[in-house]
């Protein structure tokens, strides 16, 4: 194990997979000479050259469409979208092409590709650059949507995504890049796609989270522990396929749940997970399931207003207290 930031863990996963497989290459805006807008691919251009670290025009349909085409020929492209907000420009290629070609042509087409995209607010970038629309992409069968909450998972999940024969949208939260954790150094360290993971044990309340909300949920759990409430934190890690197993196992013991996500509440991850809890474990429900999410506004620029809109650790803490009637 080595202690590193999530940025370093992601960079390490990319580097190792590039070293391991000649067919893996990176394409996107400023990934090469610049070293990546978030410095994730710093040093890659010098090591792997312009053939495998390809700077593209600012043209997201060409980036994702081009990656799809390259994947069809057997390569393993990693297409980087500078932010997930630009995915809307490439929406057709993500949902109409990447998510459907394998099915529509009865398995003839394979798309072993990864789309990396930075999601999340809190950096005063204004409404168009601060969204967390992860759930939108999780709506489409055919796509796999993954979003890690810890550096360890970031490495293991990204490596699995790169080795996967399916198109994977790998969502990174920019405010987590500095988050630190212990990361296995094994070059074949893989975390399975589509599996939730218990990040903290507890018997009193289940907190379901993913990505940015995982560290927040763990913080909230520490606060709750001081009040004598033990929270179990389940990290979804993958929004599609969605693994409800650990959530339901936990809920059947705690009978209470809070679901935390950074995106908007309506039609969101919390909506989906809570609906499934009611479908799968109705007899175990002791309190209404609570959702913690972003206020339903386009995120404002002003730092105070922006934080007011974003879900905070305290929101998770208070929601948990409410469901345990604490």
């Amino acid at each position: 194990m080595a202690r590193m930031t999530m940025r370093e863990a992601i960079s390490k996963a990319l580097w190792e997979e590039m070293e391991r497989d000649e067919n893996v290459f990176i394409m996107g805006e400023e990934v090469g000479v610049w070293g990546g807008t978030y410095a994730v691919t710093k040093g890659f251009y010098d090591r792997f050259g312009e053939k495998r670290v390809r700077d593209t025009p600012i043209a997201e349909a060409a980036i994702i469409g081009g990656a799809i085409g390259a994947a069809l020929t057997g390569l393993r492209p990693i297409a980087e979208l500078m932010t997930i907000n630009f995915a809307f420009v490439a929406m057709d290629h993500i949902v109409n092409e990447a998510a459907k070609l394998h099915y529509m042509f009865a398995g003839q087409f394979k798309l072993p590709m990864v789309i990396r995209a930075v999601s999340g607010g809190g950096r005063q970038l204004g409404a168009t650059h601060s969204q967390t629309p992860d759930a939108v992409f999780a709506h489409f069968p055919g796509l796999k949507v993954v979003s890690p909450g810890t550096p360890e998972d970031a490495k293991g999940l990204l490596k699995s995504a790169i080795r996967s024969d399916d198109p994977v949208l790998f969502i990174e939260n920019a405010t987590l890049y500095q988050a630190k954790g212990e990361v296995p150094e094994d070059e074949d360290y893989l975390e399975p796609l589509g599996k939730s993971k218990v990040q903290r044990e507890g018997d009193d309340v289940t907190i379901v989270a993913y990505s940015k909300m995982v560290p927040s949920a763990l913080e909230a759990a520490d606060m709750l522990a001081e009040d004598g409430i033990e929270a179990q934190v389940v990290d979804l890690r993958s929004l599609r396929p969605l693994d409800m197993g650990p959530v339901i196992d936990s809920f059947k013991r705690t009978n209470r749940a809070v679901i935390a996500e950074e995106g908007w509440r309506s039609y969101g991850v919390g909506s989906e997970v809570s609906a499934r809890i009611y479908e799968l474990a109705f007899d175990y429900v002791d309190a209404p399931v609570k959702r913690v999410a972003q206020a339903e506004v386009p995120l404002p620029y002003n730092a105070h207003l922006e934080q007011l809109a974003l879900p905070q650790t305290e929101d998770i803490y208070h929601a948990a207290k409410e469901v345990v009637y604490g």
Partner: peptide
């Protein structure tokens, strides 16, 4: 929509 995909396939051939 298939136009960028075609460019990507040609890239695949050049790459390989």
């Amino acid at each position: 929509a298939h136009i960028p995909i075609a460019a990507g396939m040609a890239l695949g051939d050049v790459y390989q």
